[in-house]
Write a protein that binds this DNA or RNA. Structure first.
Lengths: 122, 122
DNA sequence: TGTGGCGGTTCCCTGAAGGTAACTATGAGA
DNA sequence: TCTCATAGTTACCTTCAGGGAACCGCCACA
């Protein structure tokens, strides 16, 4: 949140919004919901994300216990990320929100158009 | 979103995240879910919000058809904001997310503490 | 004739988010 | 031997969201 106001008075939903309000976090969770994935593979599939932001995002998600990080004992060591159970459940919750979005998007779009069209500068 | 990337490829959830990812929008919806409220009353009760951000937030919510704006024919005209049906339903969806947050916050907090404590700079 | 509340709008300026690019080490393959 | 991929980290720089303050017209009250 741009506003670093402390309206985070221990409010639980602020914790989740800090993740869910972040586009990269959501996209990353969506990707990982399809199955485990490595760093550069994620980078290639999450269109437009920078190396730095992917690293930062993954660290945040890992810190919150939403994803797991596993280093594979391969030649150049590869790192596999996967959703934890908690991450899965958040993915489900996001799905709920997504359903709401899908259901209401047409109406929202229409209202926006109407709002933008009316010249009631009055 | 700081990133003005166009990962908004018509993705419905981006629309809703643009509102839900915004702290002020959520707080405003939460306040209005208790009942209609006027501008300055909202300002007083939403701790820390600036006049400008309240105006901006209300306009966004109104544009998306989540709240209604009604000018009362009083002496100094007062303006009453209220959740629309769509706003109510979003409030419900936020409630779902809130439940998730409340349920998982202890675990998240614990994992964060653990993550921060371990000095595996290795 | 102020002063205050109503509901905003406009300006400027800062602080933080995030992009870019350079750098790290290791091993495989040409 | 040179180059690529693996997974990051770090420094630098730009952008823009949002805070703060000033300002608006209007009316009531004292």
């Amino acid at each position: 949140m741009g506003a670093r106001r402390k309206l985070d008075y221990d409010c639980p939903i602020r914790d989740v919004l800090d993740r869910v309000g972040d586009a990269w976090s959501v996209l990353t969770i969506l990707e990982l919901s399809k199955g485990p994935c490595r760093f550069n593979a994620l980078r290639r599939v999450i269109d437009g994300i920078s190396q730095r932001m992917l690293a930062v995002t993954l660290r945040h998600l890992e810190r919150d216990g939403l994803i797991s990080r596993r280093v594979l004992p391969t030649a150049p060591p590869q790192v596999e990320y996967a959703l934890t159970d908690r991450g899965q459940s958040l993915h489900a919750a996001i799905g709920q929100l997504n359903s709401w979005a899908v259901e209401h998007q047409p109406g929202i779009r229409a209202d926006r158009a109407e709002y933008d069209d009316r010249p009631d500068v009055a």
